[in-house]
Amino acid sequence: MLPHTDLPLPSFSSTTTALEHISSSQLPTPWAVFKIHVFIEPATQKEHVMLTLGDVAGEEPILARIHSECLTGDALFSLRCDCGPQLQLALERIAQEGKGALLYLRQEGRGIGLANKIRAYKLQDEGADTVEANERLGFPADMRRFDMCKDMLDFMGIKRVRLMTNNPRKVKTLEDIGIEVSERIAHQIEDNPYNKNYLNTKRLRLGHMLVSD
């Protein structure tokens, strides 16, 4: 049973505009040569990315990761979160398996955008946790959506996944939109002095399935 959380789960509408596939190409990385697929969301003009390795279409459960954009963690190596190491670990795991998919969603700062994320960082510097900081700025704790994953997975013919995540909302969302999650694979990164409180907040206030020290 998934942990209880009093935060509202994302709502989804059957009228959601489908993503449009733009193009695909090879993407060599330190772990493997992936194939990169770019999609655009007409309603928001956001561009989402999917990396695949091997033949992922069919009934076999595919190792997968849903990862939301984090410029500070993914590209600038910030230690305030666990995003960058999670991204790299997911790619490494997929490469070791020889098959899998990573969905990279453009929803920075749990959906509030980069500028507001840095404003939230300032509030955190002053003592607020990540949930309190978002709320003081007038936002919910987590504004991310995952319903667009359905179009991306359907495009690749993926019906079942073994999902690398600590977030029960991602599991529930995929199940709600018709993607079977045959297994949840823990995806926890070792903490550091800069992100310990961040990880504790995810565990205690957002219901993430993290093992505490």
Rank of each mutant, 00 (worst) to 15 (best):
K196H: 15
N197D: 13
T15D: 13
P10S: 01
R160C: 10
F155K: 00
M164D: 05
K196Y: 15
S68F: 09
V38S: 12
E132S: 08
I185Q: 05
Y121W: 11
S25T: 15
R93C: 09
L63T: 07
N195G: 14
M143C: 07
C70I: 11
M209W: 08
F139Y: 04
P42Q: 02
I158C: 03
K35Y: 14
K150A: 04
E132T: 03
L199F: 07
L199D: 04
R162Q: 12
P10I: 05
H67F: 12
P140Y: 06
R93H: 10
N167V: 01
M164I: 06
A64R: 12
T5S: 13
V211Y: 13
Q96I: 09
L9T: 14
I179P: 00
V33A: 10
Y194T: 14
D74E: 14
E47W: 05
P85R: 06
L103R: 01
E108D: 00
A128W: 10
K117F: 05
G109S: 00
I112M: 03
E135L: 11
A120S: 11
A32G: 13
N166K: 02
A18M: 05
T29K: 02
Y198N: 07
L89V: 10
Q96C: 09
L7E: 05
G113R: 04
L2A: 07
I189Y: 08
L210K: 06
S212A: 15
D129Y: 04
L2N: 03
Q107L: 02
P168T: 01
P10H: 00
Y198M: 10
H67M: 14
P42V: 06
R65K: 13
A133Q: 00
P30Q: 05
T173A: 00
D176Y: 11
A32K: 14
L102C: 08
S25C: 13
E92C: 07
T173C: 00
R119K: 13
L71G: 10
D82M: 04
V181C: 07
V211D: 15
N195P: 11
M152G: 02
I177E: 01
N134E: 10
P42W: 02
L105W: 01
R145A: 14
T130R: 04
N167F: 01
R106K: 00
S14L: 15
E60T: 15
L91I: 07
G98H: 08
E190L: 14
E47I: 04
N166H: 01
V38T: 12
S11H: 09
I94W: 07
E126P: 11
N134T: 09
V33T: 15
R106Q: 03
L27H: 12
L114E: 05
T15S: 12
T201M: 06
Q45C: 13
N197G: 12
I177V: 00
A133E: 02
D125L: 14
